[in-house]
């Protein structure tokens, strides 16, 4: 065996040393910190932004609407009562959330209101369209179930940013909606009262007692 020869395969060897990244400037870190504070405050406000007492108020107006709508002779009149209730509930919800947001000096539309609006609007819009379709097709018995189910869907999705009581309330609405589809038509108004009245009152009290109003 002859002497071992080392054949240089490479001309030279370079050490690969990672170049240190330039640290972010102080003002960039300051801006990043301000952004973090704002985002955390927005997230925290959205977390408890739903007003429990507002929900309770909505629950009582819904119970009154259920009592009034039960006395209506035509479906059109029944529908009109619940449409009016929807407008009243929307006004109460907006006012009570705004009041709660102001109490912590956080504008409603900076976070919580926007998130709730974006989460609730698509299912409510879908509900409005399908209501018209069902009404025209004469399938009015399906409307209460549809409303409860889609409202519950919006509350579940909107409630993902909020305290755990909110998505749980949404799931209860969805369960009532599903029940309304299969229950006899004469139970529909009771289920509406149980959902828009009962669930709002029960969960409203829980939210108000645990999360400051």
């Amino acid at each position: 065996m002859g002497p071992t020869r080392i054949i240089p395969l490479m001309g030279s060897i370079h050490l690969v040393v990672p170049q240190p990244e330039e640290p972010p400037a102080l003002h960039e870190r300051a801006m990043d910190n301000l952004k973090y504070i704002r985002e955390t405050m927005e997230r925290a406000t959205a977390f408890t932004g739903i007003s429990g007492w507002g929900q309770v108020a909505i629950g009582f107006t819904a119970l009154a609407s259920a009592a009034i709508s039960a006395q209506q002779k035509t479906f059109k009149a029944w529908l009109a009562v619940w449409m009016a209730e929807a407008v009243i509930a929307l006004l109460i919800a907006g006012w009570s959330m705004d009041r709660k947001a102001r109490a912590v000096k956080m504008p409603l539309l900076s976070g919580p209101g926007r998130k709730v609006a974006f989460s609730l609007s698509p299912p409510i819009f879908a509900g409005a369209i399908v209501t018209v379709v069902l009404y025209r097709a004469g399938l009015t018995n399906a409307i209460p179930g549809l409303w409860l189910l889609l409202y519950g869907t919006g509350v579940v999705t909107g409630g993902m940013f909020s305290v755990s009581a909110v998505p749980i309330m949404g799931l209860c609405f969805m369960a009532l909606g599903a029940a309304a589809f299969f229950a006899p038509a004469e139970f529909a108004n009771w289920l509406m009262a149980a959902g828009f009245g009962g669930l709002h009152i029960v969960f409203g009290v829980i939210i108000a007692r645990r999360y400051g109003g």
């Binding site: 973090y36 504070i37 955390t40 405050m41 927005e42 997230r43 925290a44 406000t45 977390f47 408890t48 109490a103 912590v104 956080m106 999360y211 400051g212």
Partner: peptide, 9 residues
């Protein structure tokens, strides 16, 4: 920051 936006948590 979270507590500044809420009465308590």
């Amino acid at each position: 920051s979270a507590l500044a936006a809420n009465e308590s948590l």
